[in-house]
Amino acid sequence: MTDGLDWRLWGIVLLCGAATYIWRALAVFVGGRVSPESEAFRLFSCIAYAMVAGLISRMVILPEGLLAEAPLSFRLIGVGAAVAVFFGLKRNLAAGVIAGVAVFALLIGFAGPPM
């Protein structure tokens, strides 16, 4: 760390925030007069659900950065354990999350990348 402000770094942080806000603002700008009962609302919801689900599935199957260090099988087994426990225990979110993360942690701890 250098003395004083790192202007380039602050510039990047501020511009990244602004560049994400463009998407948010565009949506408010466009979507001013849509009713929750309309077909347009149903379409936007489907697009949003598909995009978010696609993002998460991509993060598990084709991750970038740190997560890519864990093998695909570990990631899939972890998510699989979470889903199984979640539905097995009547949609218990906490139990599912704990099971998935614990299985993943054990896999990388005992058989994972040598870190």
């Binding site: 994400t20 565009l26 995009m51």
Partner: peptide
């Protein structure tokens, strides 16, 4: 960074009617 967050467009669009 902006492209990775493009989902906010449909997400915000879909909640605005509420």
């Amino acid at each position: 960074s902006s492209a990775a967050n493009a989902r906010f467009l449909p997400m915000v669009l879909s909640v605005m009617p509420l």
